[in-house]
């Protein structure tokens, strides 16, 4: 490709991959340390388990990266995961798998549309708007399940969540597919360029003829869709759902996106690096589990890593500007 022949482009790619290499290096160090400290860590059973566990976070993180590049947040995703799973499970027993899944998938973009319209037209921070929908969607999940666990799902549906392909959990493969699509949309489509432009500078984007509000609403619909989709994957994997599922998922996902280097202020980010962010968080939880450290320390460790990652990023930017 011509792009690669350009010396400036090569330098730029090198700089970009510098960030990527750095994230990979952190990951590699983690893996080495963990495999030394815990011999079970590198076993395929542990790793494939991990893959299955991360799938839900990965799928939501793909959407979250897009919405964060557009300069917004969505903290309602955990509730949307639960609501979509609950609706899907409840309908499945009455109308069959396909209609139930399709209907439950609609919930995500619908809530995203609501979030986006209130955020952009009402000029309210998306953090606050989605805090509202976080509570509303969670409440609806309780209404749908009646506070009970819904299980007893069709086998063919659970096969998607519990099956393996080449010994890799299917949910993990589906999550990777989501990232492939997300990467393509961001890097190769006009919509993707608009997302970056709106997040980098809304005024510049608007004056360039981009309907900034429309782009942000679309991004919030996308993250809503990924949450509803992840809800169905979760349902298929676990084979049961209760309204309390996926509480706090939003912050774990935002943390992963941030650790992956996406700017909190929008306009910058690489969706593929988000994968590394999700893996890093999952590995640390896994490590704490394996080494039998009190489970109550898990959030402490994750929190400390978020601060360290963001601090490192900020320091690097400051050095880079000198």
């Amino acid at each position: 490709m011509m792009m690669m022949s350009d010396p400036a482009r090569r330098r730029e790619l090198l700089l970009q991959s510098y960030g990527l290499l750095q994230a990979l290096a952190v990951l590699a160090v983690l893996v080495v340390v963990m495999s030394i400290l815990s011999p079970r860590f590198l076993s395929w059973i542990n790793i494939s388990n991990l893959m299955g566990q991360m799938a839900v976070n990965l799928i939501v993180a793909a959407g979250m990266t897009i919405v964060m590049i557009s300069g917004e947040f969505d903290i309602s995703v955990g509730s949307v995961v639960a609501l979509a799973a609950a609706v899907s499970a409840a309908l499945m027993q009455q109308m069959g798998v396909v209609p139930a899944v399709l209907l439950s998938l609609l919930i995500g973009p619908a809530i995203g549309f609501f979030n986006g319209v209130i955020t952009t037209k009402g000029r309210i921070p998306s953090f606050i708007v989605t805090l509202g929908t976080l509570m509303m969607a969670r409440s609806l999940a309780f209404v749908v399940t009646g506070g009970q666990v819904i299980s007893n799902l069709p086998e063919e549906f659970k096969a998607i969540g519990q099956g393996r392909l080449f010994n890799v959990p299917i949910p993990f493969l589906i999550a990777l597919l989501c990232f492939a699509v997300g990467w393509f949309v961001l890097a190769r489509t006009a919509f993707g360029k608009r997302v970056y432009a709106v997040g980098a500078n809304r005024m510049v984007a608007t004056l360039s003829g981009i309907h900034a509000d429309r782009v942000k609403i679309q991004c919030m619909m996308i993250v809503g869709f990924t949450a509803a989709f992840a809800g169905n994957i979760l349902l298929a994997r676990i084979g049961a759902i209760q309204a309390d599922t996926a509480r706090g998922l939003e912050f774990e996902v935002i943390a992963a996106v941030v650790i992956g280097g996406t700017s909190l202020y929008g306009g910058q980010g690489n969706i593929l690096r988000t994968i590394i962010g999700v893996i890093i968080i999952a590995l640390i939880r896994n490590f704490l589990n394996l080494s039998r450290i009190d489970i109550f320390w898990q959030d402490f460790a994750t929190g400390a890593i978020i601060i360290a990652a963001v601090l490192l990023d900020a320091l690097q930017k400051r050095v880079g500007q000198r």
Partner: peptide, 14 residues
């Protein structure tokens, strides 16, 4: 940036 549409083919692929 103002003429992205001009470079977009089917499905908005640039």
């Amino acid at each position: 940036l103002p003429v992205l549409g001009r470079f977009a083919g089917t499905g908005g692929i640039l």
